[in-house]
């Protein structure tokens, strides 16, 4: 049995969402002729090799035919990244995320008991995000709160976001930082990128900043039950980041005296990462060393990232793991992390 911790779906167009918007926002959408970008802020240009040829499923029947049926999937967690970069109107963003969550509930979760979903929440207004988590938090089919790893001008460890993280933890929801997001935020410390290649690579750079922020800014002592999923952001960077983070913390701990243990301890206690994309060496011996350094059997959860295509790294990873480790990555890590019963 397998759990897929990152499969994608998207509304075919904004018309799909009109029944889930109230009259004011329907008029707003229709009056301005607003649309949803198929490339989602440059993340998946329809012709790019990384986007996959199948296209993002728009209906549950399509997902069943292409991914679920005939597979050994016990669960698949749907991540709809459609609202990541649609609008900078905070009230519209709140209405849009609410509409997407209702669409997920009505047109997906109601129709296949294998499906779970990340709830999308506003990023511009943390109070509205908390309200949406409170509204949906008791529906156990939502397993996580989905946030773009490329967020706004402050990182998620900042106290501005603590109420959002707190609400998720209070409902037992994982917080999932998923690749891509706000194109207006510089994706690297040296500013904007100039190519799709740089943008694609930047998710693994941005996520290290988010991990650093969440640990250094003391989130996990305040919220000891909080769990963070890093989706589609890679994981091969973990050993180098954590080696340096542990080392520097020993000298610079005084600035963050609430950090009570080595950063790497927080990381392996509170974070899990999805297996797509997997940037790993091809040589079998080097691959085995990388798996050990990354502590892959503890950290990773299988994901198809359907329909996106990141090459064969994740398959090679699973092939390099022994039976128990492969089972952990395919199923048990996610079952425990998301509290999913078989």
């Amino acid at each position: 049995m397998t759990i897929d911790t990152d499969a994608h779906c998207a509304p075919a167009s904004i018309k799909t969402l009109l029944p889930y918007l109230d009259a004011y926002w329907r008029e707003y959408v229709l009056g301005a002729n607003l649309g949803l970008s198929p490339s989602v802020g440059g993340a998946y240009p329809p012709g790019a090799p990384t986007s996959g040829e199948a296209g993002v499923p728009n209906t549950v029947d399509e997902l069943r035919a292409k991914l679920l049926d005939g597979s050994d999937l016990r669960y698949a967690i749907l991540n709809c990244v459609t609202p990541f970069d649609v609008s900078r109107n905070l009230y519209f963003e709140a209405a849009l995320t609410r509409a997407i969550n209702e669409w997920l509930r009505t047109e997906w979760l109601e129709h296949d008991e294998r499906l779970r979903a990340g709830m999308v929440v506003p990023t511009l207004d943390p109070e509205a995000a908390v309200a949406e988590i409170e509204r949906l938090g008791t529906d156990r089919r939502f397993t996580q709160v989905l946030l773009p790893v490329r967020g706004l001008d402050v990182r998620y460890g900042h106290k501005r976001y603590h109420p959002v993280l707190e609400a998720a933890a209070a409902h037992g929801l994982v917080v999932c930082l998923h690749a891509w997001g706000r194109v207006a935020s510089a994706p690297t410390f040296t500013g904007a990128t100039h190519s799709y290649l740089e943008d694609y690579l930047s998710n693994a750079q941005i996520v290290q900043g988010q991990v650093t922020s969440l640990i250094a800014e003391g989130v996990f002592d305040k919220l000891p039950d909080l769990r963070i999923c890093l989706a589609e952001c890679g994981f091969a960077w973990a050993p180098s980041l954590l080696w340096r983070f542990d080392k520097e913390w020993k000298a610079v701990w005084r600035e963050v005296p609430w950090v009570k243990a080595k950063p790497s301890e927080y990381f392996y206690r509170h974070f899990r990462a999805t297996t797509q994309p997997a940037q790993l060496p091809k040589d079998a011996k080097e691959l085995a060393e990388a798996v050990e350094l990354i502590r892959a059997p503890e950290l990773l959860m299988h994901a198809s990232d359907y329909p996106h295509n990141h090459g064969d790294g994740a398959q090679r990873l699973l092939a390099a793991l022994d039976g128990a480790a492969a089972d952990a990555v395919r199923y048990t890590n996610a079952a425990a992390f998301y509290d999913l019963a078989s």
């Binding site: 913390w249 020993k250 000298a251 610079v252 701990w253 950090v259 009570k260 243990a261 080595k262």
Partner: peptide
Amino acid sequence: WHGWEYDLATGQSFLGPGE
């Protein structure tokens, strides 16, 4: 050089909290 801290009274070094 590297920020290792020592108790002036005893010379004992200390790691970060909880380590």
